[in-house]
Every structure is written in structure tokens, then in C-alpha cells.
Design a protein around this nucleic acid. Structure first.
Lengths: 376, 376
DNA sequence: AGAGCTCTTGAAATCGTTTTCAACGACGAG
DNA sequence: CTCGTCGTTGAAAACGATTTCAAGAGCTCT
């Protein structure tokens, strides 16, 4: 007998109880050709002439034998992965995860799954994970608060990415309106000496938010006082950077009656610092946050904040990305950005300014950072 | 000419600038056989006799031509996916995402990626996502706060899953010690009328935590007063359920000087309710949380809480799972559970009980739920 | 020198699908 | 009746990697 290795196709492939069964076994079990079974299972148009009862029988037996198509074989041949990649700064961040939860449902419903990678704002990791994701054959990318330098090899949607990369669709909040809402609210209450917080330089919203703030202030004839601008630093996603920055502001003894925090987490840090300086929120200092995280309503005091529709932005990102993937001619490819709207949620961290506070200075306390004493 | 379809292997496969190149092109470009190239790229032992400079040349040219092995072909043949599945209740939950961030790094370092699915505590979704994940050929599963009814077809590690499914390794917190730390702290301060919160019935920690609480109380000869037990209800991952439950407790006019919340989010809700009843934290009611979420230190007051090492638990889960995957004979397969330790973080939400409060009753206020007024 | 080893090597088998394509049958028009 | 067209069908090509396996080379030992 000559060299012979190929499995004899005349042989009926054995069905073993534990081993997963493949389409060949399924077909021989059904007495049909592999092609017919494949066509029926995939609802291919070529299967429309096959009797309806055969269709039913195929599905029935497939279920009975617990046939699960091998995803690698399928993807290898069809060149589809039904997988997308998601880049975030931190998975543990409230912002990103709310967006994620918006993305998830739509994706799942459409038969896609996603990989998440978190780069902690480190450019080297961003580059590395781009490769990891591409080597996993993602069909599209959602980049949340992630600076992309160049166009990606697959359709890409960014959320709050303000980098204007050609061919990338950007889901953004209307920062102009958002800033106008927050500053308008404070202005209307009578605040004139308002402190503003700039986000970390690596956070993509920082610059646009700041520009929007300047514009909104200008529109109200409100002067932004240089000494009242505080800057967040570091990669820490906790209230720590805002706490530190606000302490520094308080130590400077500059008077202010309100502060517009970069986000709700930062607002928590700011409130902490203000309290430790023996000042009350909102009576002495009003605080406005940003995002409306899930605990914002339950904080003490309830946080007045600008709500970003994060879930909606995630959903919109997922929908847009699938359109880009599924139709290379979709007009969406030409869109630079899709804008969503913010709304102001007024709670109890803002009120009319304390008249005394506008003039007179209260010395800041010298208490230490929130202590994290531990006992085993 | 007879029927001929197979690409003539004598023909050099053309290298087109934009199309991805495959190993065949790479090999012909290098003047080597496909097998040799594959062996070199994979550091196969069979390649050790090939000259070192050939190795270098292969890697060099592979990089130069930007060769990326097709993951589907590779996985199809090698029957490995280097992918694991993660099931969580909610991606937007602080608890799960801290665990996730612990999982992520280790997994990435080992060349694995992961799919996340979130089931919102709905059994139907759990079942569906089990199928989704298996059809994606995951090599292992991490189930966070997820009830698994039966053994999974792949190695499985659960975090805070107390279901005792055969063959599943469980990463758990030492709830006994955790409860003893919290209750011991309150007891030591002098609290005797302590309210306890039971978690939602679908949360896997609820039962074990409760048992631990009863045991710890018993050990201290502390009576758990039935009317001071509150129960969380509903799927809402916000402070809302705890707020509602605590309001009900306050409305009952039962006296208590401390409350042990189910977790930090619940503690936020409880504090809110207590404040609205015109009581102070901690002077009138001490509050102890659980988890030590990132904002716990910055809340007002700083939250005394039992810290779960969530990142560490995630890391441990990832490490354990990879061991299970990589060695079917690893003794870890026999382990029922791996226990990690809690620590008490004392901040400012606890103090000695108010003597008046232990006897006399303060009428609860009738204010509404935290308002979420919106303006466009 | 020849037998018996081991080590290298690359052609081809293999993984499990989807889809192409040649063959064939049915049918309508001329 | 013949031809052309169209629709149906299943064998086999294709996807792109890894790995088997037989052949051949290189050795040692008698």
C-alpha cells in the first residue's frame, strides 16, 4: 500500500460520546453532504430549495448532538471574527465602565464580543495593546479616553478622543453647552469668584473642556481669575489629585465662593479638602461636579453636577462601529463626530454665595490627608 | 488541461503591499521551507539545529514584512485560544472592576486576553453567556459574584462564589475574620445596639457574610436584635437599596447606635438616610462599610470599613486559572478554596456611642428621597 | 563496509469550516 | 428534438497556520 495519510472519506466518522462533534460527523449522521448542512445552518440562500422538513431535521439533530461549530475554522474561512477591541485608561474607573456597559448590550445582541485592554495612560502600553488587539483579529476598535496617534487598520470609534484622526468617528459631549450649564448655574446664583479645575493633561477631555469653560465664562462676562485655576496631576484615578490641588488652592488664601470640579471623583476630593479647611459645602463654597456617577446623588451633600449620558455614548459608539464594520460605504465613515448633550443636575452642593466669604478670609486648617490607618 | 484549482506551489506567492502576508510568502521570501520558518518563529526544539544567524534573519524579515500569524489558523491547528472568559454581574460595579483590574495584568503578561460578559443577576443571561463564551473557545472561566449551577467544561475559578461546585476553585475572603474585625471594632467602642444589613439574596457573599456576622456576634456575647436587621432588595447597584432599607429601619423607631453596612456603596446610602433623619454620623450612629472602594477615604466622614484585597483576589484568580489550564495535574485542581484576608480601616464614621441615643429616641424626619431634579 | 542509530528536513496532512465550481438535471424556447 | 439557461448539488479547494512522518544525512559500532 502506498503512502496514505488522508482519512478515507468513505469511512463514516465515529461519534464518540465526549469528543466534540464536527460538521462532517453531523452530515454523515444526517445522510446529507457537508455542503448542504453548512448551507442550512447558515441560512445560506443556496439552501432555499432544500425541503423545509430537512431544515428542521438538521437543526434538530444538531441540537441533539450538541453540535457547536468551531469558531476558528469558521473565522479562518470566512475572515470574520465578530470581535471588537476596547481600549480604556482603567477598567476600574467609573467613567469607562459606564460607557462599557452601554457598549456591551448592543454588541452582544448583534453577536459580537469584545476584548478590553487598559493602558493606564502609558503610551508604550497603548502601542503594545494595539498590536495585541490586531493580532486577535478585531474587526473594530472603541477607544475611550485614549489618545490615538495614527489611523487604525480597522474601523474606529473614539469616545471623548479629540485627536481628529482621519477616518475616525468621535463620540463627544457638547462641552460648550456642558460648561455653559455649570457656569450659568453658578453665575445665576451670584457667584463671581469661581475656581476652575483643569483635568490631567493626558485626559482627552481636559483641553476641550477648558476651552469650553473659557468660552462660557466669556459669554457671561465672567472673568476667570488666574490664581483660582487649579490643575490635576498624576495618573491616580481616585479623589487624591483633586484633594491635593484643592488644598493647595485653599492654602494660597485666595478667596472663592465656588469651584467647578473636573469630574465627580474630583469633586469628592475637593469637598474633602474644603471641609478640612473648616469651610462648609455649599454655604461657604459651592461645588459642581461632572459626569453624575452613580453615587453622586447620595453623597453628602448631594452633588450638583453636569450629567454625561455615558451609557448612551457607549451605545452610540457600538452602533456606529457596527455600521462602519458592516458597510464600508456607510456615509457615517465621513462623519468627524457625533455629539451628545449634557444636562445639569442640581442637588445640594451649590447655593448662593456666602457674602462674608466674598470679602473675608477664613484661615485653612492644617489637618493631614484623610488618614488610612489600618489595623490587622 | 485537466481540472486544476490548487495554487501551483512552484509559483512564488506574490507579495502585495497592502495585503497581509502569510507564512508561505515569508518562507519563499526567505528561501526557506514553511516548516523551518514556523519552527523558528515558535522556538520549537526542532529548530535548535538551524544556524543562529538564520534565526535572526527570519525574525528580522518577519518584522520587516510586518508578518502577523493568523490567529485563527494557529488556534485551529494548535487547539489553543489563549482566551479566557469573565462573568460579572455588572461591569459598572466598583467591586467587579477592581477584581478585573487585578486579573487583567497577569493575564496580559502571560499572553492571554479575556472576554467580559455581565449578566445583571439574571439566570437566563448566565446560561446564554455560558454558551456564548464556550462557542468562543475560552480556555478557562473566572466567575465573579456569579452563581454557577453546574461544573463548566473548562477550568473555572470563582471569586466569592460559595456554591461548592465540584472541581471549581474558589477565591474567598475570610468572612469570619472580616466580620470579627468590624463587629469587634464596634463592640470595643461600646456599641451594643448594632444594626446589621443583609445583602441581596442573589449576591453570593450575602449568606456567608451573614453566618460570619452571627458567629462573630456570638463570640462576643453580642445579641443580634431581630428588629435591627435590614435586608437589601433589588438589582440596583447604586446606594438606593441601602438608602431605602435604612429609612425603613429609622422609621421603625428602633434604637441603634451603629450599623454595619453590606458594602461601601450601601454605607453611602445608609449615611444618607441617617443624615436625613437629622442624626449625625458618627456621633449618633456609627457606620462601618465593606470593601474599601477608592472613594471611601474621601467621603464625609471618611468611611471606616473592612478592606477586601480585591485586586489581589483578581490576581490570585488569574494565576490560579492559568495553572489549572496549563497543567491538568496541578494539585490546585483538588483545592476547594483559596482564602485571603481582610483588614479593618478605621476612619471617621465610627466613634463611641452617644449615651443619649442608647436610651432616648430621635424622631425621623419625613424628607423625600435624594432629589434628582434636572434642568436641560 | 554495512548495519543500526539518531538527527534534520521539508512535503504534505491536519484542524473544521465556508464557498467555489464543475457536473448534472430540468425546463423553455426555437 | 436540440440547444441554452438556470438552479441544484456535493466533491474538493481554500483559509493559514502547526506538526507528523518518511526520507535522507550523519554517526557510531562491530
Amino acid at each position: 500500500m502506498p503512502r496514505k495519510r488522508k482519512t478515507d472519506s468513505a469511512l463514516v466518522p465515529a461519534i464518540q460520546p465526549d469528543k466534540p462533534i464536527n460538521i462532517k460527523m453531523l452530515a454523515s449522521h444526517l445522510g446529507l453532504s457537508i455542503a448542504a448542512v453548512s448551507r442550512i445552518l447558515n441560512h445560506s440562500p443556496a439552501a432555499k430549495s432544500i425541503p423545509k422538513e430537512t431544515h428542521e431535521r438538521v437543526f434538530e439533530v444538531a441540537k441533539e448532538l450538541n453540535y457547536k461549530p468551531n469558531i476558528f475554522a469558521r473565522s479562518l474561512r470566512s475572515r470574520r471574527s465578530y470581535t471588537i477591541g476596547v481600549m480604556v485608561a482603567e477598567v476600574s474607573e467609573g467613567y469607562a465602565t459606564l460607557v462599557l456597559s452601554g457598549i456591551e448590550k448592543h454588541l452582544m445582541d448583534e453577536g459580537y464580543v469584545y476584548f478590553v485592554v487598559s493602558h493606564h495612560h502609558r503610551p508604550a502600553l497603548i502601542a503594545e495593546y494595539e498590536n495585541v488587539l490586531m493580532s486577535r483579529a478585531i474587526e473594530g476598535l472603541v477607544a475611550i479616553d485614549t489618545p490615538l496617534k495614527a489611523r487604525f487598520p480597522v474601523p474606529t470609534v473614539t469616545i471623548s478622543g479629540h485627536d481628529e484622526v482621519e477616518g475616525v468617528v468621535n463620540i463627544v459631549l457638547d462641552q460648550g453647552r456642558a460648561a455653559a450649564l455649570a457656569i450659568g448655574h453658578l453665575h445665576e446664583l451670584g457667584h463671581r469668584r469661581i475656581a476652575f479645575m483643569r483635568g490631567q493633561s493626558h485626559t482627552s477631555d481636559s483641553t476641550t473642556r477648558w476651552n469650553a469653560i473659557e468660552e462660557a465664562a466669556h459669554a457671561l462676562d465672567l472673568e476667570i481669575l488666574r490664581p483660582l485655576i487649579v490643575q490635576l496631576n498624576g495618573n491616580d484615578p481616585t479623589p487624591e489629585p483633586a484633594y491635593i490641588a484643592t488644598r493647595k488652592l485653599l492654602d494660597s488664601k485666595e478667596l472663592f465662593t465656588a469651584i467647578f470640579a473636573f469630574n465627580d471623583i474630583a469633586a469628592i476630593g475637593a469637598i474633602r479638602a474644603i471641609r478640612e479647611a473648616n469651610l462648609r459645602v455649599p454655604e461657604d463654597v459651592s461645588v459642581v461636579g461632572f459626569d453624575d456617577i452613580q453615587t453622586a446623588a447620595y453623597l453628602n451633600p448631594g452633588l450638583t453636577t453636569v450629567r454625561q449620558p455615558l451609557k448612551k455614548m457607549g451605545l452610540l459608539a457600538a452602533q456606529s462601529l457596527l455600521r462602519l464594520i458592516q458597510s464600508p460605504t456607510d456615509p457615517l465613515h465621513a462623519a468627524r463626530q457625533l455629539m451628545v448633550d449634557a444636562e445639569l443636575v442640581v442637588r445640594n452642593s451649590t447655593c448662593v454665595p456666602n457674602p462674608k466669604r466674598s470679602l473675608q478670609h477664613t484661615p485653612p486648617s492644617k489637618s493631614a490627608t484623610p488618614h488610612r490607618t489600618r489595623r490587622g
